[in-house]
Amino acid sequence: MVARRGRRSARGSDEGIPSPPGYSAGSLHLPEFGACWALFLGVPQAALPSPLHRCPHSAIPVKFSGKQQASHYLYVREHRVREGTKSSWPQKRTLFVLNVPPYCTEECLSRLLSPCGPVCSVELQEKPDLAESPKEPQSKFFQPKPVPGFQVAYVVFQKPGGVSAALALKGPLLVSTESHPVKSGVHKWISDYRDSVLDPEALRAEVDTFMEAYDKKVAEEEAKAQEEEGVPDEEGWVKVTRRGRRPVLPRTEAASLRVLERERRKRARKELLNFYAWQHRETKMEHLAQLRKKFEEDKQRIELMRAQRKFRPY
């Protein structure tokens, strides 16, 4: 951080770019954002000792295609958890991959790691998660496809040997090859657009099945409630619902607040104001206190304005 700051200031003097605000070359010319960044510089990160230090990951370079010069690195290790922690990923057979680039899809990762051994499943996630995501596939109609960023992956091999082979991979891995091109840029957007145009009939079918199941569930619940209506439980309590013969006030916060408010108003109506001398005195004092408070506020405001030199008329 120090080095960076030093560099910035050095740059400033070298090139002399930070110039006074003014206009040149027919466009707005302004001081740089520079100072705004102090915000970000000012927050030191808590340097927590990470358990990962003890079990170093191996790094596998990965590139989009052969044309690129620089590469990202996949940080992989065997998926292990402390004793007692539950994890749905199978021990020994699961490879935990960090820093998967956005253009790398699940199929792609599966293809890249298959030389190490047959791959059971690949799951990409936003952040590390010990549990497998629910198996039930999310509806493509109601869950818009997320835009991928850098992700983590859990790769389950069929045999434990796959994991160790993967840890020894040298790379660099190529995401997009001639035989398996991966779409990006304009081609990807066009195909995404095509995918976003969905078949309404399929949607209708899905909605119908869901609603059928829902209606059934609701009907069952109602039937159960009907059954229990007026039947005391083991301790003799009877559950009163709004479906009963004598509907009761719904147990909501709003309703209870309303009741309280009504009570308060009723009490306020009974009170006499300015009846006793002390009440008079108190109202006067209250008025004075209000004025004082206002005055203090105004003074504070003026002080602030003076500090900002707001009283220079021109």
Binding site: R4, F40, L48, S50, H72, K127, P128, F150
Partner: peptide
């Protein structure tokens, strides 16, 4: 963002787009 150029300790949540 200047803060992003501060070297970070190795943590699973920090690795995105970074290298060791």
């Amino acid at each position: 963002k200047p803060a992003s150029f501060q070297p970070q300790p190795f943590k699973a949540s920090n690795t995105k787009g970074r290298m060791v």
